[in-house]
């Protein structure tokens, strides 16, 4: 259990370090056009925010499905 916990911590740390590097390397203003909405933001956030939202949605969906599945 402890091994799993530390693997998860290391995994999270690696992902966050990558996020910082990606944010720094793409810290440039871009204009985002979402059909009717238009705004200026950093390319870093355009890359990272959807990735985080997508990942979080995937994890919560998987958990919900495995929770509702009947046991053996």
């Amino acid at each position: 259990m402890r091994g799993n916990g530390s693997r998860r911590d290391v995994g999270l740390a690696v992902v966050l370090v990558l996020a910082v590097l990606i944010a720094g390397a793409n810290f440039v203003l871009v204009e985002v056009r979402l059909l009717i909405v238009q705004f200026e933001t950093r390319l870093s956030w355009v890359l990272l925010v959807p990735a985080i939202l997508g990942f979080a949605t995937g994890v919560s969906y998987t958990r919900k499905r495995s929770g509702s599945r009947p046991g053996p």
């Binding site: 402890r2 916990g5 530390s6 911590d9 290391v10 999270l12 740390a13 966050l16």
Partner: peptide, 9 residues
């Protein structure tokens, strides 16, 4: 390792 990883996070 876990502590270092958390600090980095």
């Amino acid at each position: 390792v876990s502590l270092v990883a958390r600090a980095v996070s």
